[in-house]
Nucleic acid binder design. Sequence first.
RNA 1: GCCGCGGUGGUGAAAUGGUAUACACGAAGGCCUUAAGAGCCUUUAUCCGCAAGGGUGUGAGAGUUCGACUCUCUCCCGCGGCACCA
Length: 766
Amino acid sequence: MAKSKNNLKYIPTEIEQKWQKKWEETKIYSPNLDKPFDKAQGHRPFYNLMMFPYPSAEGMHVGNMYAFTGADIYGRFKRMQGNDVFEPIGLDGFGIHSENYAIKVGRHPKEQAKISEKNFYRQLRATGNGYDWSRTVETYDPKYYKWTQWLFIQLFKAGLAYRKKAPVNFCPSCKTVLADEQVIDEKCERCSSIVEKKELEQWFFKITKYADRLLNGLNEIDWAEKIKIAQKQWIGRSEGMIINFGGIDVFTTRPETADGATFLVLSPQHPKAKEFKSKDVVDYIEISTNKSDEERRREKTGVFTGEYIINPLTKKKIPVWIADYVLMGYGTGAIMAVPAEDERDREFAEKYKIPIEKTSLSAKPVGEKVVNYHLRDWLISRQRYWGPPIPMINCPKCGWQPVPEEQLPVLLPDVKDWKPLGTGKSPLANHPEFYKANCPNCKGPATRETDVSDTFLDSAWYFLRYVNTEFDNKPFDELRVKKWLPVNMYIGGPEHAVLHLLYSRFITMALHDLGFIDFDEPFTKFYAHGLIIKDGAKMSKSKGNVVVPDAYIKKYGADALRCYLMFTGPFSMGGDFRDSGIEGMSRFLKRVWALASGIKGKDADPALDTFMHKTIKSVTEDMENLNYNTAIAHLMEYYNELHYFYTKYKILNIKYCKTLVLLLASLAPHITEELWNNLGEKSSIHQQSWPAYDSKLLVENEVTIVIQVNGKVRDILKIKSADVKNQKDVEHFASLSANVKKHLDGKKIKKVIYVEGRIINFVLNS
RNA sequence: GCCGCGGUGGUGAAAUGGUAUACACGAAGGCCUUAAGAGCCUUUAUCCGCAAGGGUGUGAGAGUUCGACUCUCUCCCGCGGCACCA
């Protein structure tokens, strides 16, 4: 029986902490991962995953909270819809970002990680998200990175990890090399320093081997279109032809222009370029190697080698040049230059006075059809401290050997001189006690790899570990993985389109091919959420516009902040954070509280029933599409209706309130739990079934018909549904309207458009 | 340059081709109160009008349609991705 609780005030902080504690004690968000899926019972496993945060600052800001909350709401909704929801959380705390923060605050990364972990988890608990706290994953935990190292070894054994000397991106500020994907506009993805090119020997993953599968797999998954496009662009498949020009292979996508090729250009890194010994050429190669991309782009430069070759189509002698507008990393590192057709070639030809000749556009050169990709192999090595040591040993006799699996993890030693050196070597290179090892093969003296692996390797497989955290003897259990993966819903920021999301797909495909898992796409559905901005700009410390949630939670409660954040706009678009907005949301929750606490009476009302069922329908659809802003708007309308009814009749059936509270439960989990309890319910609201609507009850007994004359609204009629059976009835009612009569007066009606139950339009002869 | 997403009141925003501006914020007025706050009620795109009513309005312009924020075309502006990729 509902009691009057009018005297109880809504004090968010009290009820929120109470329920957070209770939820954790009763483990309502910790599903039994091993319980076999019983179709009859209908509780499907649903893996609801959000991108885990990297704790690089003092704590999380409302931008982070926005993302986590939006994802949590979806998980709660799915749970109420009858799914067995697994929603884990962890920290991506290994890697450059966390280490850079540690450098900034002058603390050892390991010590800082402990502080960050405590703070982040405290904040995440305070937002009331329904995580399974018994299964967190921290990437810097040896129990986790043991398996990151194991993964490296599997890839090495499969020939997917290899070393090569190549010009690589080097960040002078982070003092390490970076993968192509981590260079944005020639700047470091982390610290925005301009990256340099260095020729170094490094570890790579053969992601290019998967280029076509990474491309084709996109057709099989339900991902935000913009992410798919970004990946497609990054993989950059282009079909073309290799043509042999006097012993030099060139790649072109336009073979039909080959008869217009008036010179040949080699990249300075092309092996053939090194065969020219003239001082001009040697100097040019030297200079261009040290140029930044930006310098190279500013002006095209090159040097004539003194050699000519024959264009096989025209049989004419054409000069061979070396120029750094041709990149070694794409195609064959050599091009046929067709200045008549290609703007870049023309620019170069004009500068160096090379003849420009027309092409027939129908040349048919002898060549081999090939496919080229923009995608490069993934550079894994980092000359840093705070990451998993790459588990490899170099033996002077046997070469590179993987660390035997029983010796994993290769523990990251606690050292005092952990800061990056900038010498092209990791700080661990100063620690013989770490790097001195015996060759696993011949047992002779050997040295360990001192570089650590890229952070993106840590996060490329964490979703597999969440369902397996208790196993120390294996990275993942076959049955667990079979039951829970691939991830049903993955929610995160679109900024990881070509980083984390691409790497995770690659690692999953590799694990699939090695026989460890039976699926090759990790995330069935990916939803890209928008960003919360402040004063028109992305939140960042340098701009000084970071909003921390703690004070708002204290003042208004997590529920108000959650709902407010979701109400700013569509979840996929983000929104602008304003203090005034949260006041309004806080008011709404107080009103709901007052209504649900003061409720009395038993009578149901047919009109209210229709309103309720319509609300259930629209809120359900909104939640499914993650349109939380309109879901909240519909709940507000519903509340307004209930409130109007209640003030008028002083009586309200309790079912209307229960529905309101149930529909609001995933958005505002604490207040609804408390109200549910106050309404006399014993079990948690978060384990209730999502309300269902009856489509028979959606029909209102009154219809609103808009009367138009020549497309302009002249009257709006509310008529009993029973009285309007057809167009004739509507025309009859319309003819009674004085205003409509006035506009139709003396005019000839050309035709009448009638849309049932909506609109009637009289079109006049003009 | 190519690809994608946007542009609607004072503000955040809503609208299966069918009443443009739901829902909220802010503002104005009122009730309650000794007062303040909270709460509640009313008004709030714009122009003409006492009102009834009418005109104009979704970045600009054209088109399709009885009817366009919505579909098509040409532009302008903002944001994001890719790019000496041959």
